[in-house]
Design a protein around this nucleic acid. Structure first.
Lengths: 219, 219
DNA sequence: GTCTATACTTGGATAGAC
DNA sequence: GTCTATCCAAGTATAGAC
């Protein structure tokens, strides 16, 4: 009911405040990445957003609610990107290649660190755990559909227990991010994805891939 | 220097203070498990230990130093237990059975949650990351020797890149704990270990190996 | 060694001026 | 919508009595 239409805002004013709202979300994300859950206070966020601490409570009511909004943002952002990257993946090697790519990006952006910090931080705030869990669930579903897509051509697809594998995939992803972030060394994780690509390519070779209309990739 | 010998303590006195020191470490562990890194303050720990908040600083100098002592304690404790459980494992199925057992225990005790909280909490305190990383390293080494032991009889042992796999194993372990702890649902993780046991048993069957003593217990 | 008391800092949250 | 000012709770850490 508030937040209503058209917003006849005065000349030159800094928009409707939606801009600062967005700035706060973005600042919350960055603060979670670099300072962790324990270091992400209303003051720290506001400073990074270049605005006043009180605005956190005006726009979001509380710090944790802002943090959840940040988690939502990073979630939908990454999910869109993952879906696009998954694109026309139909083979194990294709899946592995995309996974390696995407993981490398996630190391660079640090987006997954936001997830990790929110999960670990959940223990300290009553009720937060359930909220975070609800926002993690889609990732498991996505992982499963990715596995299905990548193994659709392979006999493995109908044999492997994809429900359990998808859970493992999410867990592994989070664990790798956590360890890489800890010592700042992503080489171990990338080496692992390289290896996965090798194995997947081997799988491809064993699978008679009949149609596969020579992809529409462009160089 | 300090902490010197023999401590001719008065009759009936509560030992030399080593007892409260230990109580503080134990309380720190429990607080990390239930309140998370962000919720683990000197006051919270002292309350749980049944002593005064000032003793944290008397015995450990700072909260983070106590937390690191707690991490050490949980680390050596679990490492001892893991080594014992690994015992005479020489086959994939044996390894999988032990791993499932041990993970189930870790879910119950929550010891791995301490690791996870410390890793995630590292971001918020300068210098803590390196300390924690140093204490994680032994786990990767242990995982590797466990894999070597479990695959010693199998041709897989000489083919698989154990260095990379051990890193993945640690990451997976941490990730599974994190997710299980989040929604309080350990069924997904245990289902996964059950599945691993099936696969490992299959591997055993393909490997002509001498009579092997069966796993110690089964449901 | 352990406690009480206290100094100082930071954080969450609200009221009110602009 | 945004800022200043402020209240209050909680945290780290130290000093000093017992």
């Amino acid at each position: 009911m508030a937040k209503s239409g058209v917003a006849s805002r005065p000349r030159g004013a800094t928009s409707t405040g939606a801009a600062t709202r967005q700035a706060l979300v973005e600042a919350a994300i960055e603060t979670l990445k670099s300072e962790g859950f324990a270091g992400t206070s209303a003051r720290a966020i506001a400073t990074r957003a270049g605005c006043n601490q009180a605005l956190v409570f005006y726009h979001f009511g509380s710090v944790v609610d802002l943090l959840l909004a940040a988690l939502d943002q990073v979630g939908t952002r990454r999910m869109q990107h993952y879906r696009a990257a998954l694109g026309e993946v139909t083979t194990p090697a294709g899946l592995a290649a995309v996974a390696a790519d995407v993981f490398r990006e996630d190391m660079d952006t640090g987006d997954v660190a936001v997830l990790v910090e929110m999960i670990a931080g959940s223990s300290s705030t009553p009720g937060l755990g359930a909220e975070v869990a609800a926002r993690i669930a889609p990732w498991r579903e996505f992982a499963q559909s990715a596995l299905e897509a990548g193994l659709s051509g392979s006999p493995l697809g109908s044999v492997l227990p994809l429900g359990e594998f998808s859970h493992a995939a999410v867990a592994l992803y989070l664990g790798l991010e956590m360890l890489s972030h800890l010592d700042g060394d992503r080489s171990r994780a990338t080496a692992l994805f390289d290896r996965a690509l090798q194995v997947a390519s081997l799988l491809d070779a064993f699978t008679t891939s009949p149609p596969v209309p020579a992809a529409k990739e462009h160089p």
